[in-house]
Design a binder for these strands. Structure first.
Lengths: 217, 217
DNA sequence: ACCCTAACTGGCCGGCCGGTCAATAGCGTA
DNA sequence: TACGCTATTGACCGGCCGGCCAGTTAGGGT
């Protein structure tokens, strides 16, 4: 699992730039996210990928370039998943619930995704995912507007607020999950808590975001 | 502003360990949060503090110890602020709104606070703030339970879910704010958007979290 | 068969970084 | 005034890390 000999074939062909690139990217992604880009020596990435350090520079240039490529590749997957999710959605309240659950499940099943976002929050400079993320954001706002026009969503809310709180609810759970586990101790059933959180957040968010049958106060 | 000559008196007394420690901590906090702990050389902290690198090791031991101390000091302030806020609160819906607004304002006025949390999310090992954070968490849960008992909050929600979504709503905005600014460009009025977000989130959260006058479907 | 491109290797270097240490000099105290 | 403690200094070190380079070899095109 650690030293990666090949991708599909039994034995790595003696020259296989594709497999080499893949092995380096895989090792780099794991180590960068685990230790942080600055605390990850290229030598260690090379060792884990079963490759010489020079090959990293041969295929990717510098260490920073490799980090960029790792981000780009992973965000590409995220982008595709979210794009199809947004494209297939209709502007109804059910769709909003499904989107929330779907997004939560997506983050749940891909722990790397949240760590990527965390690192993007912490770094300051521009990054390679900018344009794709903008596109998703615009698409999401469009969907929200549609739902508002249909009366499925409260019209007195700024779409940006809805998108942002949507993302916050899902992302923050997984961002703070390690700290929560550490706090509750190893005997706690965090998985059950996670399901409960999803249920509750769906309730809170949907009830808060849908038009009220009767406006109080 | 950068090289710190003294705290209160006009001239830094030639021997002033208190001021020295303070200058180092201040410079370290700024640089650690800006560049990240791993990318911040002690030499640069020393330069910015107007102090020799050796003094850092003299007063704080190692670089890691300094980082721990910076976290401990800053989290202490956060802890005090949140503790008084939680202690003074009553278990009513108005209190919940005030808490949300108050917490938002707190993060708004202290940008370092969110960056600290971001770094804690990204690091894995134990940290020095553990016990204090646990205390705040327990206190918050207690308050939520009180409000639920009074019927001011829906009883079908797990208190942890309420706390977590509460924190998520406020924190995520500031975590992703730099990316949002970068996306919207320099001409956008992000401050107005921020106020709007706070308004909307208060609506969403309170409407979602309060018992419904009439339960739909 | 030849060759040329590019994948791949091992060794190496310059630089920076965290940390140490011996020496110096203020400051409180007796 | 003399002493001792410690804040402070600057020089220094060992190690690691990112990157480079000269050389080797596989493989594909002609």
């Amino acid at each position: 699992m650690t030293t990666n000999p090949a991708t599909s074939p039994d034995v790595r062909r003696r020259r296989d730039p594709e497999a080499t690139r893949a092995a380096i990217l895989e090792a780099a992604e794991e180590l960068f996210l685990k230790l942080g880009p600055a605390d990850t020596p290229t030598s260690r990435i090379a060792r884990q990928a079963g490759v010489t350090k020079s090959l990293i520079h041969h295929h990717f240039g510098s260490k920073d370039d490799l980090w960029d490529e790792v981000k780009r590749r992973h965000f590409g997957q995220y982008y595709e998943a979210q794009r199809t999710m947004l494209a297939s959605s209709q502007g109804t309240a059910e769709m909003l619930r499904d989107s929330l659950v779907g997004y939560f499940r997506f983050l749940q099943q891909d722990p790397h995704a949240v760590r990527f976002m965390s690192w993007r929050f912490v770094e300051e400079g521009d990054d390679a995912c900018k344009t794709q993320e903008d596109e998703l954001f615009e698409l999401g706002i469009e969907r929200v507007r549609e739902a508002q026009d249909k009366g499925e969503l409260r019209a007195d809310l700024e779409p940006i607020s809805i998108i942002k709180s949507f993302l916050a609810m899902a992302m923050h759970w997984f961002q703070s999950k390690p700290l929560l586990c550490q706090m509750l101790g190893p005997e706690a059933d965090v998985d059950a808590l996670e399901e409960r959180y999803l249920d509750d957040v769906v309730k809170i968010f949907l009830d808060g975001v849908r038009p009220r049958d009767k406006q109080p106060d």
